[in-house]
Design a binder for these strands. Sequence first.
DNA 1: GCGAGATATTTCAAGTTTAAACTATTTAAA
DNA 2: TTTAAATAGTTTAAACTTGAAATATCTCGC
Lengths: 152, 152
Amino acid sequence: MKTTVQYGKEADLALSLWVKLARASSLFTRLSARDIERYGLTQPQFSVVEALGHLGPMTTGDLGKKMLVTGGCMTVILDNLERDGVVERVRSVEDRRVVTVGLTTKGTELFERIFRQHATRITELASVLTVEEQQQLSDLLKKLGLALKEVQ
Amino acid sequence: MKTTVQYGKEADLALSLWVKLARASSLFTRLSARDIERYGLTQPQFSVVEALGHLGPMTTGDLGKKMLVTGGCMTVILDNLERDGVVERVRSVEDRRVVTVGLTTKGTELFERIFRQHATRITELASVLTVEEQQQLSDLLKKLGLALKEVQ
DNA sequence: GCGAGATATTTCAAGTTTAAACTATTTAAA
DNA sequence: TTTAAATAGTTTAAACTTGAAATATCTCGC
């Protein structure tokens, strides 16, 4: 949302920054989702497969923390992935409140088949910036993300 | 989603960039939404009020383009805002396919009451970066956003 | 004038998202 | 030991989101 109204120099810069952040993120998410769609997964479903594929089985709560989504959301995403036979939930024996989520055989095959292709597509998208720009942007976003995590 | 697996230097940089972009955007969106919530609006509802407040009445389609959401989504957001008496829809006389959306008196009052406060909050959030960093980040995100808009 | 294609919006189905309430279980303090 | 508080996960209600199909209207070539 471009704003031409003046709220002071600092506020204008901040507002414009957030607009561009939202816009770039939204555009990228949509392009990425379009790629992932070819494998029959949605964006959050892919994030789960990616996390479990790279890091191995983990609890529902840890997955949610990694993906920055709430527990209720995680439940729905896992319900759908479980229905499709991609992940399985195992109630922990030591602490019966905990559910550990892992990839099924089908899920592992899916991960191995698609992740490299998707990485290629992401790399292609990022290449609209030079490597130096990517590095610079990455550093700034990292600082921003870490700082925002501490707010409130 | 942090990945420690190697897919090549360039791919690793690209993947890490996208993770940080998604993370920063998600964190900001959540903090912003928490602020907006105090005024009884959701984030997309606020975006509509903001656009109409700054730029005046416009069509459903133009609003959707500005906010990067699909038409179907726009319909729902406007339905809810209209129900709450914040916006009104007027069928265009010249082209009867077109619907022009504008703020009601209540909507205008809301805009004037809340936008400055929200701008202050956004400025506060952005201040975790220096003004120079904000400017640099803004420039890089602008380049990225413009380039991604042209993809496909 | 008329019909084909384009355009603006809505409707629909499926999925994601959050916060809050709820259940089950564990931990810890009195 | 027993009960209160904390924790893990699910359920629920409301909203957002997309893409595709449907509806209404407009435009343009004939």
